[in-house]
């Protein structure tokens, strides 16, 4: 009945989706996009521009990794931008010397994790919709940040963050290396670990998960904590990239990260998608934004394109049955 040779051939990952695009669709699209941009504007493929794009991918990519966990768990995390800005503000809140790097890192991570805990608690224990829960924590955190900075943060980012955020090693940005490490670690966690399997089962259907003895609430809370922690790291990286921190560092990342994830095939209805797809989504987004600038188009087009992309990607992936 079961053809053994066929069965052998299917030793793939456990997630198999009926509506999944060919795994090559996203990379192909990215390559096509890069090729077209390069043809239209040769400057696009210049070393400095590529290096610049790589520098920009990293902070977004790091946020997308966390967002992936949350979206696969049927949620979404709007508080990431607020966590990023707060982490960035913290980065300048000290002497600006490398000696403070550890304290900054710990405090920023603490804030990210605490935000994630609150988000997760609201979503699981209080049944608040993820959208509202994370929107509310975003606002509250913003309030605390404003109160802390009294409007305008000042101070410098430690040189180490500057290095990681904006320097390159033989053309490869340090922050890109950080992204790759984080992507591999969390990619393995999501795709290969027991916890990752529990994430997929819970995101696919929380009731099923509970009846399988999985602590769905705990899994969900951890998902939000991962998102918060990674957003904090992304905020520090971004502070190193921009150098001068204001209260709005990371603004727009909440939307961008969701757009990237959805474009990368992480369905907003939960249970589907993976980190690699999300990262391709992030790369596509950065390339599009970059091309808009390079083609001499008004920068506002970026926002419009973002809006169109989010609706069209959703129309493609998450059509409702109604």
């Amino acid at each position: 009945m079961v053809d053994v040779s066929q069965a052998r051939a299917t030793e793939g990952p456990a997630i198999s989706m009926k509506s999944r695009l060919s795994p090559y669709a996203l990379p192909m699209f990215l390559i096509a996009l890069i090729a077209v941009s390069g043809i239209v504007s040769p400057a696009f493929l210049s070393t400095s521009n590529i290096s610049n794009m790589l520098l920009q991918v990293a902070p977004l990519g790091i946020v997308v990794i966390g967002q992936a966990f949350v979206i696969i768990l049927r949620g979404l995390d709007l508080s990431v931008s607020s966590v990023m800005a707060t982490a960035a503000v913290i980065a300048t809140g000290f002497s600006g010397q490398n000696s403070d790097v550890l304290s900054i890192l710990l405090i920023a991570l603490g804030i990210g994790i605490a935000t994630g805990l609150v988000n997760g608690w609201l979503v699981t224990k209080r049944s608040v919709s993820p959208f509202l829960a994370t929107l509310a924590t975003m606002i509250v955190l913003q309030g605390f940040r404003f109160a802390y900075t009294q409007g305008a943060p000042s101070g410098n980012v430690p040189p180490l963050f500057r290095l990681i955020g904006s320097a390159t090693w033989h053309g490869v940005p340090y922050n890109m290396m950080l992204l790759v490490v984080l992507a591999i670690v969390f990619g393995v966690v999501l795709a290969k670990s027991r916890f990752g399997r529990e994430v997929y089962i819970t995101g696919g259907n929380p009731t099923t998960a509970r009846l399988l003895g999985i602590n769905a609430d705990r899994v969900t809370i951890i998902g939000y904590v991962i998102s918060g922690a990674l957003a904090a790291i992304a905020g520090l990286v971004l502070s190193g990239y921009v150098g001068i921190v204001d209260n709005w560092v990371g603004r727009g990342f909440e939307l961008d990260s969701i757009v990237a994830a959805v474009m990368g095939g992480i369905s907003l209805s939960g249970g589907q998608g993976g980190i690699l797809g999300g990262l391709f989504g992030a790369a596509i987004l950065v390339v599009v934004f970059n091309a808009v600038l390079l083609f001499g188009l008004p920068v506002q087009l970026q926002i419009i394109i973002k809006g169109l992309v989010i609706v069209l990607a959703a129309a493609f992936y998450v059509r409702r049955r109604i």
């Binding site: 997630i15 399997r197 696919g204 259907n205 099923t208 589907q272």
Partner: peptide, 13 residues
């Protein structure tokens, strides 16, 4: 579908 299967996962999972 609602309480038994993990619909997005495969037979082995």
């Amino acid at each position: 579908k609602g309480q038994g299967l993990a619909m997005f996962l495969d037979v082995a999972a």
